[in-house]
Nucleic acid binder design. Structure first.
Ligand SMILES: NC(=O)c1ccc[n+]([C@@H]2O[C@H](COP(=O)([O-])OP(=O)(O)OC[C@H]3O[C@@H](n4cnc5c(N)ncnc54)[C@H](O)[C@@H]3O)[C@@H](O)[C@H]2O)c1
Ligand SMILES: NC(=O)c1ccc[n+]([C@@H]2O[C@H](COP(=O)([O-])OP(=O)(O)OC[C@H]3O[C@@H](n4cnc5c(N)ncnc54)[C@H](O)[C@@H]3O)[C@@H](O)[C@H]2O)c1
Lengths: 254, 254
DNA sequence: CCATCTTTGTGCACGCGTTCACAAAGACAT
DNA sequence: ATGTCTTTGTGAACGCGTGCACAAAGATGG
């Protein structure tokens, strides 16, 4: 999982559990694909398979939205697309700003998946004067001096932060002060925000480290299983051959 | 949370809960910052604040690793950095390949945060013949024909997929067949993999949709609180003014 | 050596999320 | 109308994660 909600511990919204909310976009994506193939109805079993979840979980998730299925038949695809879209707030347009138009910010700006849902890139903002006026993805980059006015003029409530980590909190503070109440943070920093502001983070490095943990565990188990059979599985990254508990502390605690 | 683990339901590894594993990188980042400031020891309270978590949770997390603290004092920063690094498998180098060197793939390749932990970009792979040989982040892009050989020669076990969604499953299959056992997927698709292969996904669109959900809920509550006081909060994105339950189904189920 | 003070490590309770399993509901055929 | 068959919707049980609250451990000072 690359993301992790910050803050807002268990604010079950209108009875819809947070875990369910996080899966609704998954269902919506699968349903949209079915809709494009003009499939009229779908069973919980089929849809669950397409979304990569358990069918019981899917049914329970949908039960929080209402009784939208027909027993013996399944769910009407178009109807469900509409209901989930409405529940997620995608029937309206959400203007978003991206702050920090470097490698990642530019990639996001160029990403078509934004507009395909109800999101519209309202502005690109960067602190580098050399960037101001440059066209990225057909949008002119604006200098961060005008951040507050841009937020206000466009009624932006969602901000994306792709600046270096050192300035992320400062950028976040300005966004919040200007009226932004939802932030998607790509900088590897813990952001502190007032109550009522939602922060979600995407941290590539954390994802890789979690994968590395499991990878190491798999290698350790494999080694334990093979015990001292063959020397090494040809070129695998276990050269140091430090057992899973090769406890050689670098520094002892005081 | 931008990521979400696929598969591997609750394979509590060596007694370390999955939720704890996901937080270890957070602690490690905070500890590294302290280490750079030459702070010798840190209390659970301070470290928890820096990592943005509850101190009780942090202590419980560390208790799974062992008793590395000193009561009345706290934790030795350097020692803890080493222990967590070892637990996460960061004492060894992990070669990774990135497949699909477009906007996002190139941004990731240029990202310095890779190497700062134990990850090394072993190769960049793309199916576009025009990309082959091009330098991205100082690395020459290789054609996907040689994917299997690249994986094998470099002992790669972690792959990053940044191709268009339509080919992601095919790319995934090839990576797995070539020996990759951990995949970080940026394409908005559900990947199916055999047992023993870990998949984590990062989906920007899902993150935004979750934010939109809460944003809508906030707007709805605000509207309910204001009832019919002032017309509108000047430029906010609630023009359609469809109440939180403006139930107007597009299509009725059969 | 003893008292005091700080901070860890954890037992325990609670709530959320997941999954099972099945009754109820509806479609469809006869 | 009745029976059969499919699939939903959900009650209930269970397990994981979280947070409280405190006893134990060790540092520190006298
Ligand atoms: N590139 C990646 O793949 C990647 C992956 C994970 C995380 N990240 C994180 O995302 C962030 C951006 O990464 P990047 O590779 O695009 O970096 P980058 O250096 O290419 O881009 C950062 C941009 O932010 C701008 N900036 C700096 N200070 C600013 C301010 N105060 N206000 C507005 N803009 C400001 C800079 O001018 C620059 O254009 C970093 O925090 C990085 O750690 C990047
Ligand atoms: N750009 C973003 O910010 C962003 C955000 C979220 C998700 N994504 C997803 O990430 C993926 C990449 O996005 P992008 O904007 O970089 O797209 P892109 O079109 O710029 O890049 C895709 C690259 O993949 C290559 N490719 C195509 N088929 C391939 C194959 N079979 N093997 C190897 N390489 C292949 C293409 O040649 C191209 O270079 C997409 O699935 C997109 O939905 C992107």
């Amino acid at each position: 999982m690359a993301t992790g909600r910050t803050h807002r511990p268990a604010t079950r919204s209108r009875g819809i559990p947070e875990a369910t909310v996080a899966r609704l976009p998954l269902y919506l994506r699968a349903l949209t694909a079915l809709s494009e193939r003009s499939v009229p109805t779908v069973s919980s079993e089929e849809l669950a398979a397409a979304a990569g979840v358990n069918s019981a979980k899917l049914r329970k998730d949908f039960s929080y939205l209402g009784s939208y299925g027909t027993r013996g038949v399944g769910y009407d695809v178009e109807y469900l697309v509409y209901q989930i879209s409405r529940e997620l707030g995608l029937t309206q347009d959400w203007p978003v700003v991206i702050v920090g138009i470097g490698n990642l910010g530019a990639a996001l700006a160029n990403y078509g998946g934004f507009a395909s849902r109800g999101f519209r890139v309202a502005a690109l903002i960067d602190a580098d004067p050399a960037m101001a006026g440059k066209q990225v993805a057909g949008i002119s980059v604006q200098h961060s001096d005008g951040l507050e006015k841009i937020i206000s003029d466009n009624g932006v409530s969602i901000g994306v932060i792709t600046t270096p980590p050192g300035v992320a909190q400062a950028v976040c503070d300005r966004l919040v002060a200007a009226g932004v109440t939802s932030i998607l943070n790509f900088a590897p920093t813990v952001l502190t925000v007032p109550d009522g502001v939602d922060v979600r983070k995407v941290d590539l490095s954390i994802e890789l480290q979690i994968l590395a943990f499991h990878e190491q565990r798999k290698a350790g188990e494999e080694a334990a299983a093979n015990e001292n059979a063959v020397p090494a599985p040809a070129g695998r990254a276990d050269s140091t051959d430090q057992g899973p508990d090769g406890d050689v502390p670098a520094v002892m605690p005081a």
